[in-house]
Design a binder for these strands. Sequence first.
RNA 1: CGGGGUGUAGCGCAGUUGGUAGCGUACUUCGUUCGGGACGAAGUGGUCGCCGGUUCGAGUCCGGUCACCCCGACCA
Length: 490
Amino acid sequence: MAKELKELTKRADNYSQWYNDLIVKADLAEQSAVRGCMVIKPYGYAIWEKMQQQLDKMFKETGAQNAYFPLLIPKSFLSREAEHVEGFAKECAVVTHYRLKTNDAGDGVVVDPNARLEEELIVRPTSETIIWNTYKNWIQSWRDLPLMCNQWCNVMRWEMRTRPFLRTSEFLWQEGHCAFATREEADANAKLMLKVYAKFAEEWMAVPVMQGVKSETERFAGALDTYTIEAMMQDGKALQSGTSHFLGQNFAKAFDVTFLNKENKPDTPWATSWGVSTRLIGALIMTHSDDNGLVLPPRLAPIQVVVIPLGKAEQVAAVEEKLNPVIEQLRALGISVKLDDADNKRPGFKFADYELKGVPVRLVMGARDLENGTIEVMRRDTLEKESVPFEGIVERVKNLLEDIQQNIFKKAVTYRDAHIYECDNYEEFKEKVKDGGFFLCHWDGTAETEAKIKEETQATIRCVPFRIRTDTRRGYGIRKTIKVPRAHCT
RNA sequence: CGGGGUGUAGCGCAGUUGGUAGCGUACUUCGUUCGGGACGAAGUGGUCGCCGGUUCGAGUCCGGUCACCCCGACCA
């Protein structure tokens, strides 16, 4: 074990390899035997649960409610919206039969050819279609609006190439689907949800994000506008971390959803959909981690404080007696504390292991501290440790957690801002973009230019940022956009 | 779907011109350790991806097949 973990201390030449190793060694997830899928292990899932908890709270504050819709979608639903089907058709898993039978040799099972479904079912790649098919029955009057539902579920997209957390065939996410009476309300909702995601990313994940609008090429299949938050990973590449779509009336029309408005006239509702996935865990890992392993933001760390008593059995008992009230008090403050007094692992191993797992604060106490009335505190973000008076340790730990949360966010902002460049010259851009980072550039708004840039430089347009979207300084009506050399995913 | 690669113990790998299946690590037991990834001793664990062929004999040679990985293409 020790040797295996030591390998991690040398960052691999290949950033992707380093990322994959980290996930396995920190006990977050492992590759499934099923192609392109991932097994999320308890420690990794605990992070997801903390994210879910907070996001769910934030969604409910906007008026959304949780619901659940079926996993299987009739094939015909998908084709109701032309762009939507075109976008997703290539990556759908399809259910064609509903029964197996024993094979002729009697030593296995085969698909029963007599059990073919009349209409094939798609394993949901996203749920717009089945939800809007349901909304048809739920929406009759302007009084039924707005209708705001969210579901926590899994989806499946048969991706050619997969990477843990960033793009797996099956992944966990949340998808919100809202219906409004007016265009303005819907667009405002799409923007509001993006703000919610941005707030969550920055305040909880400590991941700074750029907010903006996707280009037409990168837009969600079936949407009029896709709003996105883009984070910068430590290799200078972008990661799309959440999207919120203004769907217009496309899905409402495709599924014949109408309502009677206040004037007693038939009207068509306006839609939004918004989602974030377990990819957020990938963002977390790639934003903060260092060569010692994960660095988790205290607000999302499953274990916020680990307490390690040192010495032989009798000494540990004496130390624990002193520590127990402190642990109680920390827990009373809502801080999750793990006491690791296992006697089958040496302290050095425990230290390294909790660093690998990104536990923000470590408290260590032994016979020496007991004598001196001190305790050792280590913070994961800077790896600094100091011996402090035992008195007031609870308050100190509480403040330290908050300090770490702020510090890693600041660090991420500093890194990102140091890699954002403004560029007015295409030749200069072509040269500089090779090293990664975000580039604020001009763009004539056409897909041709976008494709050309991608071909010549591998850079993609991540978004047109909100704050400088309508920059027309140069008189061409040209908008500033962010481009990065390569994205981790789109 | 193209180009390349790999399948041998839980994981990482070696296996020479064909001759009894190996190493590291993990795991189990015992002992000594324990303030930064301990050490010693003894153990457990494998139809060598699968099917067929050549041979007295195949992890090794030949044919087929399956799976996975990497690079492309693709990727809301």
